[in-house]
């Protein structure tokens, strides 16, 4: 039985080699984008938690009530904890989680 040496697949010529879209002078922009995204993630997390609190309280979803919801101290503490964990996760990816330095 003759061993078949698998041929190395050729590189599709349609695929670029070593392409780098972003350049180092855009690093600050990337950092800003990450933080902007982090803000949005936190806003969404906050909204869901508040929504759950309102639903639990009233049994129905009332958007206006979410917007006027005055966060009680115990929920605020939970929100702050969640916020800090999300920020920490992003900073960890940047090798800068303040709780681990």
């Amino acid at each position: 039985m003759t061993a078949v040496t698998p041929t190395k697949p050729e590189r599709p010529i349609s695929e670029p080699v070593g392409r780098r879209i972003l350049t180092s002078d855009q690093l600050d922009d990337v950092g800003e984008a990450i933080l902007a995204l982090t803000r949005e993630v936190y806003v969404l997390t906050d909204r869901l938690m508040v929504l759950e609190a309102v639903l639990e309280k009233r049994g129905i979803a009332v958007q206006a009530e979410v917007d006027r919801f005055i966060v009680p101290p115990d929920l605020q503490a939970k929100l702050n904890d969640k916020r800090d964990k999300i920020i920490g996760a992003v900073l960890s990816a940047l090798k800068s989680d303040p709780s681990r330095l």
Partner: peptide, 18 residues
């Protein structure tokens, strides 16, 4: 504040803390 504004300000405070 409305929810978005309140959460954004809270987030900003979190960034300041970090």
């Amino acid at each position: 504040l409305a929810q978005r504004g309140r959460a954004s300000v809270d987030f900003q405070a979190g960034i300041n803390k970090a």
